[in-house]
Design a protein around this nucleic acid. Structure first.
Length: 455
RNA sequence: GUGAAUGUAGCUCAGUUGGUUAGAGCGCUGGAUUGUGGUUCCAGAGGUCGCCGGUUCGAAACCGGUCUUUCACCCCA
C-alpha cells in the first residue's frame, strides 16, 4: 500500500537550487568567521535532557523536543504518574535525551567538558540545525539553522567590537543593508533599579521590547498589568523615549542613571564600544536602542540585534554577553559573548531582494550524449580529460532517445552538449552544441576545453 | 498553549441553492521529427475531492471530530 509521503510539521526539504543558495550563505559566514580567528566545532543533535532543561525558562522547557528512551521505556514509569496522566512528571521517567534548542548551551557544555584541552580565550563558530516545538508561522520553523560565533574566557570589550565588525563584513559581503541595534543589560538593570523595581527587570524589558511594534500606550498598559506602580512607569517614560545621536543618548542616560552603580557601568561599557567603533569607520549603522531587550535571560552585558533595512522580517542576527553561562555546568568566572546569524531568515531576505549571485559555479557545464556501447567507452576518456581541465561534465548514463537526453540538458540548464557518434569517432572530433544559441561546431578536445573555459 | 483560515490531478487553482461520468492551465508520457532541447501541433496517462464519522434518496459541497498547511497572539532566529 502506497502511503502519502510527508515530513513533520515545521520542517522542510531543500532542493538543489535552494541548497546552492544556502551554501552560499554558509560559505560566506564561514569565511568571515575564520578571517577573525574562529574555528568550527560541532556538537550532537541530541543532548542529555538534564543539560537542556531549565536553561531557557519555563517556556523554553515546553518547546524542547524530547526523545523517547529506547527499548521498553514504560518499564521505569511509575504507576502513579501513568494513571494520573501527569505528562510533565512522566517525561523525566521515559525520556532522558532531547534535541538541542540552540547552540549556546551545548557550547557552554562543550567548554566545561573540554576545558583542559581548550586555549582561552576560546573562539569558535558552529553552524548546525536547532529544533523548537514551537507552532510554525511566517519565517519560523521547528527545525532551523543557526550560525553562532562566540568567544569565551575574555572580558574585553574588544570582543564585542570584533563581533560588530564581523556583522559588518558578513552583510557587506552578502549585500544586505542592515542596522545593528546595541543595548546593554546593565543599563536595563540600572533603569529597573532607579524606578524602584529592580526585581521586575524581566517584565519591564519584555514590555519595552515591544515599543516599536505596539506603541508607547500599549507598553504602559502592559506595565500596569504587570503590577508596576504609576510612579515607576512615569519615571520610565523619559528614559525609553530618549532621542538624539548615540552620544547624546548616552550623555542623558548617564545623568538619569546617576544613582545606579550597575546602570553607570552599563553606560560606560557602551561608551567604550562606541569609542572603538568610531576609530574603525565601519559602513555599518550602529544604533543605541534602549528598547532592545531580547528574551534570553542569561545576557548580562551587551545585547545585539541586526535588522534588514529593506525587508520587514524581524531580526536576522542576535546575541550578547553572558557572564556565567558555564557556571551552571561547574566552571565559574568564564565570561562569553557571541552572536547568532539566522540563516533561514537571511535566505528569505536575499531571495526577496534577489541578492543571490546568478552563476554559483555549482552546475554541469557539459553533457555528453550517450549513443551506445562503443560511444560510451570513447566518451569516458574524453570526459576524463575535460574534468581534468576543471570542467563540470557528465555523460548521460543510458543510451536513451536523443530527445530525452537533450531535454535533460535543457532542464538542468547545461550550457554545452557534446555529441560523439559513429561519424565523430571516425574523424576524431566532437560535435559541440551551444544550448543558448543553438550553434554547433566540430572541435577537438583541446578546443572544446578552450571554448567552455573562455565562455 | 490561545484565536482564525485552509486542504480537489505532480504543481497552481475552478467546481452554481446538495443532483448522472469532478474540470482548466502548467507539468508528465508518446507521436509529428528512427542523431538535436527550449517554440508549435496531435494524442494519452494521472483524482477513495486530507482522513474518520454524521445529516440526506443522493455529499467535493452541509454538520462534528481529527490531521496538514498558513496567519495572528505568546515567545523567538
Amino acid at each position: 500500500m502506497a502511503q502519502k509521503p510527508g515530513i513533520p510539521k515545521g520542517t522542510r526539504d531543500f532542493s538543489p537550487v535552494e541548497m546552492v543558495k544556502r551554501n552560499y550563505i554558509f560559505d560566506t559566514v564561514k569565511e568571515v568567521f575564520q578571517r577573525y580567528g574562529y574555528l568550527p566545532i560541532e556538537t550532537p543533535a541530541m543532548e542529555n535532557l538534564s543539560t537542556l532543561l531549565g536553561k531557557y525558562g519555563e517556556e523554553g522547557d515546553k518547546l524542547l523536543f524530547k526523545v523517547l528512551n529506547s527499548g521498553d521505556y514504560l518499564k521505569k514509569a511509575s504507576e502513579e504518574f501513568l494513571s494520573s496522566k501527569a505528562s510533565g512528571k512522566l517525561t523525566t521517567q521515559i525520556s532522558e535525551k532531547g534535541l538541542r534548542y540552540d547552540l549556546t548551551v551545548p557550547f557552554a557544555r562543550f567548554v566545561v567538558q573540554h576545558q583542559n584541552e581548550i586555549a582561552f580565550p576560546f573562539k569558535r563558530y558552529q553552524i548546525q540545525p536547532v529544533w523548537r516545538a514551537d507552532r510554525p508561522q511566517k519565517g519560523r520553523y521547528r527545525e532551523f539553522f543557526q550560525c553562532d560565533v562566540d568567544v569565551v574566557g575574555s572580558n574585553s570589550l574588544l570582543n564585542e567590537v570584533e563581533l560588530i565588525q564581523i556583522v559588518d563584513e558578513v552583510y557587506r559581503k552578502l549585500n544586505i543593508n542592515v542596522v545593528l541595534k546595541l543595548n546593554n543589560r546593565k543599563v536595563l538593570a540600572g533603569i529597573a533599579e532607579i524606578i524602584g523595581a529592580a526585581d521586575r527587570i524581566i517584565d519591564i524589558t519584555v514590555a519595552i521590547d515591544k515599543l516599536e511594534k505596539i506603541g508607547l500606550d500599549k507598553v504602559n498598559e502592559e506595565l500596569v498589568e504587570k503590577g508596576l506602580s504609576k510612579e515607576a512607569i512615569d519615571t520610565l517614560q523619559p528614559i525609553i523615549m530618549l532621542e538624539g545621536s548615540n552620544s547624546e543618548k548616552l550623555e542623558k542616560l548617564r545623568a538619569q542613571l546617576a544613582g545606579s552603580e550597575i546602570g553607570l557601568k552599563g553606560v560606560e561599557e557602551l561608551e567604550k564600544v562606541f569609542a572603538y567603533l568610531n576609530t574603525l569607520n565601519l559602513d555599518l549603522e550602529v544604533e543605541l536602542d534602549l528598547t532592545l531587550a531580547r528574551g534570553l535571560n542569561y545576557y548580562t552585558g551587551a545585547i545585539f540585534e541586526v535588522k534588514a533595512k529593506d525587508v520587514a522580517i524581524g531580526s536576522i542576527t542576535g546575541g550578547g554577553r553572558y557572564d556565567d553561562l558555564t557556571g551552571i555546568f561547574g566552571l565559574k568566572d568564564v565570561s562569553g559573548v557571541g552572536i547568532s546569524f539566522g540563516a533561514d531568515r537571511i535566505y528569505d531576505v536575499m531571495n526577496q531582494l534577489e541578492l543571490f549571485p546568478q552563476d554559483s559555479g555549482a552546475r554541469t557545464n557539459l553533457l555528453f550524449v550517450n549513443f551506445g556501447e562503443a560511444e560510451q567507452v570513447y566518451c569516458l576518456n574524453l570526459l576524463k580529460e575535460v574534468r581534468k581541465a576543471g570542467i563540470n561534465a557528465e555523460l548521460f548514463p543510458d543510451s536513451a532517445k536523443m530527445k530525452k537526453q537533450m531535454t535533460y540538458a535543457n532542464k538542468k540548464e547545461i550550457p554545452y552538449v557534446a555529441m560523439v557518434g559513429e561519424n565523430e569517432m571516425k574523424d576524431g572530433v566532437i560535435n559541440l552544441k551551444n544550448m543558448n544559441s543553438g550553434e554547433q561546431q566540430l572541435v577537438t578536445v583541446e578546443n572544446l576545453i578552450k571554448v567552455i573555459i573562455n565562455h
